[in-house]
Computed example of a mutant assay.
Amino acid sequence: MGLVGAHVVLVGVTASRTHVVTASLADKASTANLRRWMLDGDVPILRVNAAGILAKLPGQGQADQVARVLAHDEEVRHLYMTAVTSRVCAVDWTTAGRIVSQPASYGPRADFLATRFAREALNPGTLAPAGAPRSCCGS
């Protein structure tokens, strides 16, 4: 990838804002590398960060592929949902991972969680640039 190498995408699960900025700078070659990493990356961190960046690209071109990866790659889905839950619910990574892994155990907090995710779904500030598709849950 001309703009960002795989080593940058591998540092850890990156923030939503980082994905937006990186997506705004991606060219065709970068997009092709991101797609390849999302589908075939050796480690989940690479796949989830690539998916997060692709989800922020303008237009609908990558939305279906990102959605398919989130539906079929359990490791990527878990990391992605944990990152979104941590950000949206303002909880630490460990708590967010537990919410994602065991949502029924958070039944007493269902109102809180539902309110946070409803606000996120309606928040135009979490939209990707230029009317691009939202990522799953806005990560």
Score class of each variant (00 low, 15 high):
1 M>Q: 05
2 G>N: 14
3 L>K: 15
3 L>Y: 14
4 V>A: 01
5 G>N: 13
6 A>F: 02
6 A>Y: 00
7 H>F: 08
8 V>G: 05
8 V>D: 00
9 V>P: 06
9 V>I: 15
11 V>A: 00
12 G>K: 03
12 G>A: 06
14 T>Q: 14
16 S>Q: 11
16 S>I: 03
16 S>M: 11
16 S>L: 12
18 T>S: 14
19 H>C: 02
20 V>R: 05
21 V>Q: 07
22 T>C: 03
22 T>Q: 07
24 S>M: 15
26 A>R: 05
26 A>Q: 00
27 D>H: 03
27 D>M: 06
27 D>K: 05
28 K>E: 15
30 S>V: 15
30 S>G: 15
32 A>S: 04
32 A>H: 06
35 R>D: 05
38 M>S: 02
39 L>G: 09
40 D>A: 15
40 D>Q: 15
41 G>W: 05
42 D>P: 06
42 D>Y: 07
43 V>F: 08
43 V>S: 09
44 P>W: 07
44 P>Q: 10
44 P>N: 04
46 L>R: 04
47 R>P: 01
47 R>S: 06
47 R>L: 05
48 V>D: 00
48 V>A: 03
49 N>P: 01
49 N>M: 03
52 G>K: 04
53 I>Y: 08
55 A>T: 07
56 K>W: 10
57 L>N: 07
58 P>F: 10
58 P>T: 13
60 Q>T: 14
60 Q>F: 12
61 G>F: 06
63 A>T: 11
65 Q>T: 15
65 Q>S: 14
65 Q>L: 15
65 Q>V: 15
66 V>M: 00
68 R>T: 12
68 R>W: 13
68 R>S: 12
68 R>C: 08
69 V>P: 07
70 L>I: 07
71 A>Y: 01
72 H>R: 15
72 H>M: 13
73 D>A: 11
74 E>F: 09
74 E>D: 13
75 E>M: 12
75 E>I: 08
76 V>I: 00
79 L>G: 02
79 L>H: 10
80 Y>T: 06
82 T>K: 06
83 A>E: 00
84 V>Q: 01
84 V>I: 10
85 T>M: 01
85 T>V: 05
88 V>R: 03
90 A>E: 12
90 A>W: 05
91 V>D: 00
91 V>M: 05
91 V>L: 02
92 D>C: 01
92 D>M: 01
94 T>Q: 10
98 R>K: 09
98 R>L: 10
99 I>M: 04
99 I>V: 05
100 V>S: 02
102 Q>C: 13
103 P>M: 11
104 A>F: 12
107 G>H: 07
108 P>E: 02
109 R>L: 08
111 D>I: 00
112 F>C: 01
115 T>P: 01
118 A>P: 06
118 A>E: 11
119 R>N: 11
120 E>H: 14
121 A>F: 13
123 N>F: 02
126 T>M: 14
127 L>I: 12
127 L>R: 13
129 P>W: 02
130 A>D: 11
130 A>Q: 12
131 G>M: 04
132 A>S: 10
133 P>V: 14
134 R>L: 07
134 R>Q: 09
135 S>T: 00
135 S>I: 03
136 C>S: 14
138 G>P: 00
139 S>R: 08
139 S>F: 11
